[in-house]
Each structure stands twice: as C-alpha cells, then as structure tokens.
Amino acid sequence: MIQITHVTKEYDLPPGKEGKLVAADNLSLSVPRGEIYGLVGPNGAGKTTTLKMVSGLLVPTAGKITVNGVDVLEEPEQAQQHIGYLSDFFSVYDDLKVFEYVEYFAHAYKMDSAVIPGRVRQVVARLGLESKYDSFVGGLSRGMKQRLGIARAVVHNPPLLILDEPASGLDPKARTELKDLLRAFHQEGKTIFITSHVLQDLQELCTSLAILEKGKLLRHGKIAEVMREAGRSRRVTVRLAEAGFDLLAWFAARTDVAEVRAGETPATSANFVFPGSDLDLATLVRALVTSGAPVCAVEEHTESLEQLFSRLSSGEVM
C-alpha cells in the first residue's frame, strides 16, 4: 500500500547550531495492504515528518513515495484520494454543525452527491456522534472533536488511514473505543499507518511495526519478529510437575542456553536465556523430556514494546 524508497528529509538546525537536522535518513519502508502498521520512536525521530511526506503534505528532500501505486509527488491529488489523514494537533471548523463538517469533506473528496447524506449519517453514527449530529462543532468536547476528525478522515472510505497520535488527549475509555474502532476498520480491509506514544496500545493493535530514531529505521517488520529480533534473546521458563529432576544442573551442562537461574519455586522451575529459533527450542524441550524431566509447562517471556523501545532508543542497539 505504501512504498517509501530512499526518502531523505533534511532541515536546518535551529539558529546557532551548525549542521542539519535529518528527519528521515535514506528511509526505505514498505507497508503492505491490510496491515496496522505502527511507527514508533522518540520525539524528534521523524515520525510526523514521515507521515506528512506519505500524505503529500511535505515534500521530501530526496526519494520517492507511492501510495497504492500512485506517486505522491507526481500525482498528489490522485494519491490523496486513497488517504484518510488525522494529524496529532488539529482544529475543526467551529462555525459548522457536525453533519455539515463531515458533509463538506465528503463533497471535497468528490463523493457522489446522491450517497453523501447517507454516508454522513453512517459515519457520524459509527463514531458515536449521532446525538450531536445537528450541534455546532464548537460545542464538542476534546474527545468528540477527535472522533469528528476520524469521521472526516474516513468519510470518503479511503483504503489507507494515516493517523498521527490519534489517542492523544483521550481518556482511557475513549482510547479503548478508538482501538475497537481501528480494529473494525482493519477488519474491513483498511491499511492503517499509525504513530502513538501509548506503546501498549500499539502493541495490542499493530500487526507490523517500524522503530525510528533520528530519522533512521532501526527495526521493522511483523510485530512478533521485530520484538524477537530486537530482543537480544528470549527468556524461557520451564516448570516441572514434581521435584526430583535437577533442572539447573541439566541446563548448566548445555552450551545453547545462558544465564540459567532458578525459578520462583527452585525445586520445580528454572529459567534461562535462549538465543535459538523456535525449532531449536522444540529440540531442547524434547531432549529435556527424553532425559526424564516431568515437564508440565514451557513459558516464553517476551519484552513489552515499551521495554524494547526504551532499550532501543537509549542507544543500546544502535
């Protein structure tokens, strides 16, 4: 759906500082159709710049971006019909009513006039704004305005949603509703390219992930792969049904595991770092069982996205 090829975006550093700010440094990224693709990075990593370049709002210094096969720079209007965009900070037209606001964008996206009233009602209802249908936008709460922003972004039924911090300023309930809504859009086949500071939400929501820092792509791919690749190794806990087998000694004798420690119940559990693949782990467990260990559980402890991100962005990986 999105193809970013060798994209660079340079700015000048603020007055008094030499050098240039590279918001995107020779960035190449592919967002497949139907994915919820999260873009993670610290402030200044270049997330918003990347999203704006994909939307055609910012022109990259160099490189090429296509959306649904259309070159964003060459044919911006053609590309933009495939995009629904929500920025992190925005305002709405306070002097319009809710339905007028959505209707305006439906017309601006050149939807068939005959279907616009029905579509507007449908979108407004879906975003839970029916009770405010005929109210002025100026009177809406922050959360409602955010929902109205999403209504605007989806009214023309674009196959791609580009959402920059859509959950910012929302209360926990609204955030949950937003996640449900995005999952529903995903089930309908929409591709979602999203940034958020709430990494837990992204971990729950995204199917793929890219980690940016200082304009460079640190990791990208399916979320499980990224987590595993970025983690130095996984920690595995083995629990036995009964005591009597010396787990610590058995693992200590092996060369394919590291950092072997006793578990919460030292007699029946132990954990270790395992750098191998899933298949290697299966072989290890089979060997353990063959050695007579009454294995009743094998648990894998993966790092949370938040832990991974904080480790990566602190420069451990770079």
């Binding site: 939307s55 709002l57 209007e77 019909q81 964008f105 601006a108 996206y109 050149k110 605007r152």
Partner: peptide
C-alpha cells in the same frame, strides 16, 4: 493558524 489547512490540501479539490 488553527492547523486545519492541511486537511483541505489533502482533499480532492483541485
């Protein structure tokens, strides 16, 4: 000023 101009730029209005 109110950051709504980008949304107009993104529409299919020529």
């Amino acid at each position: 000023d109110r950051n709504s101009f980008d949304f107009q730029r993104l529409t299919r209005l020529t």
